[in-house]
């Protein structure tokens, strides 16, 4: 089909239209070298992994769908969903507080963000688990009166509660920053337009600010969600039987440490991949070029104005 001849005069009519000829990308020697190295390395790793008996792939297969592991996975999913939901809600509140015109309110949120973003989550988790050392008996009630319900913090702060509290409070700080970033992307003119119509703060937030902040908030939240899925493994130090801890419980008994860590890792990997697909869709949907028009926008059929009269 594709014909090339030395003499222009001999060109057949079936020659590909010059405008349609493919344009080939230039490939340097480095690119070929990179491919070669990559293939070699891949083959090497694959060979080693499949032939080294210490990986104990049989054990991996056996435990991959073991009930204990699946229960752990469920708990991990629950922790992720619960902390993301609560964290986002609290983050929204913090973001609103942070941009408040009332100084003490904004300051409170600022201190919160500094504290929770400035210390490691792991430390925070252990801290909440041991909070009873600070406040052994908390009384929920009205200050300066005798009315109240005493609460034994030690029994209240079960490992799971500590995990939920710790992860949520930490996530809220990060979500607050994401949401605030989204808010500040909404132009000043939009706020002024809403103000000049006499909109109250709540309506303005719900109908003008949040819808316009969503395109930047949603993909970032998706990323946080994927991150949180793996972050939950930290609560294993509290003895919460989530995915990692479930694996640890088994290998503490059987000493099959590596295979069980592989089981847990595979699950984390699978879930991350599963979550990445909707995440990439979200990112595409809300990327700059496509978010100019809301998704329900119909194709505009523009007609001539009919003259100005009221």
């Amino acid at each position: 089909m594709l014909q090339t001849t030395g003499h222009g005069s001999e060109r057949k009519t079936s020659v590909t239209d010059p405008a349609l000829k493919p344009r080939l990308r230039r490939r340097g020697a480095f690119e070929y070298l990179a491919w070669a190295l990559c293939v070699l390395l891949g083959a090497g790793v694959l060979y080693s992994v499949s032939t080294n008996p210490n990986f104990q792939w049989g054990v991996v297969a056996k435990y991959f769908t073991e009930q204990t592991i699946l229960n752990g996975l469920m708990l991990t999913i629950f922790l992720t969903v619960a902390t993301m939901l609560l964290g986002t809600l609290l983050g929204l509140v913090l973001a609103i507080m942070r941009s408040s015109r009332i100084k003490p309110v904004a300051l409170t949120a600022g201190v919160y963000l500094t504290l929770f973003r400035g210390t490691p989550v792991l430390v925070q988790l252990i801290f909440w688990f041991n909070i009873a050392a600070l406040y052994p008996n908390l009384t929920l009630g009205i200050p300066f009166t005798d009315i109240g319900v005493p609460v034994d913090i030690n029994t209240l702060m079960s490992p799971i509660t500590a995990a939920l509290v710790g992860l949520t409070l930490n996530e809220a700080a990060y979500m607050a920053e994401i949401i605030r970033g989204g808010f500040s992307a909404v132009g000043k003119g939009q706020i002024e337009a809403a103000d000049s119509l006499g909109m109250g703060s709540w309506t303005k937030l719900r109908k003008v600010i949040i819808p316009q902040a969503m395109p930047s908030i949603i993909p970032a939240t998706g990323n946080q969600f994927i991150g949180m899925f793996k972050e939950t493994s930290l609560v294993s130090v509290l003895g919460v039987a989530e995915l990692l801890q479930s694996a640890q419980l088994i290998y503490a008994r059987t000493y099959e440490t590596i295979p069980l860590l592989i089981v847990a890792s595979l699950w984390y990997l699978v879930m991350t991949l599963v979550l990445s697909y909707p995440q990439s869709l979200l990112e595409k949907r809300y990327s700059r070029s496509t978010s100019r028009l809301p998704r329900k926008a119909k194709k505009a059929v523009l007609t001539e104005p009919e003259g100005i009269a009221r």
């Binding site: 132009g187 939009q190 337009a193 809403a194 103000d195 000049s196 909109m199 309506t203 109908k207 100019r292």
Partner: peptide
Amino acid sequence: RTRIGMVFQQFNLFPNMTAQENIMAGPVLV
């Protein structure tokens, strides 16, 4: 403010609403 209309140099229409929704925003939401 509801008794004073303001028109801006940069229009400042709400991009997340149609023309009709923009016009309805004041009466309905406020």
